[in-house]
């Protein structure tokens, strides 16, 4: 691997870890469920995307990164749908959240 590939994939994977860290922190700091699901699912999908880009860069042009592109496209499509299904099932089951002073 050329050093450019190495550097770029390292930067991308580092950024992906930071995104995933934010996703995990978001799971704990946010008070009610709806805020939590909005933030952590979105940030986690972005972290996943960045990580896949980093590994694709480090793998270079090969069937490996072609397959990785397929997985990335699939997850980019399905992760928001799964999160929407969870939030809808919570909303439909009448899960109300009382708006605290800090929630606005």
């Amino acid at each position: 691997m050329t050093w450019v590939q190495n550097l770029l994939s390292g930067v991308l994977i580092g950024a992906a870890l930071i995104f995933m860290g934010f996703g995990v922190i978001g799971m704990f700091r946010l008070r009610n469920f709806y805020a939590r699901i909005l933030i952590s699912a979105k940030v986690d999908t972005v972290g996943f995307l960045t990580m896949m880009a980093g590994i694709m860069v480090s793998a270079g042009f090969s069937f490996f990164s072609l397959k990785l592109g397929l997985i990335t496209a699939l997850v980019l499509l399905t992760n928001p749908i799964a999160t929407h299904a969870i939030a809808r099932s919570a909303h439909r089951s009448g899960y109300q959240v009382k708006r605290g002073p800090k929630d606005d």
Binding site: D44, I86, S89, Y95
Partner: peptide, 14 residues
Amino acid sequence: TVWDRLLGLNLIAS
């Protein structure tokens, strides 16, 4: 709530 658990499961899967 059970939906938090479902969300956590989704995150662990990814």
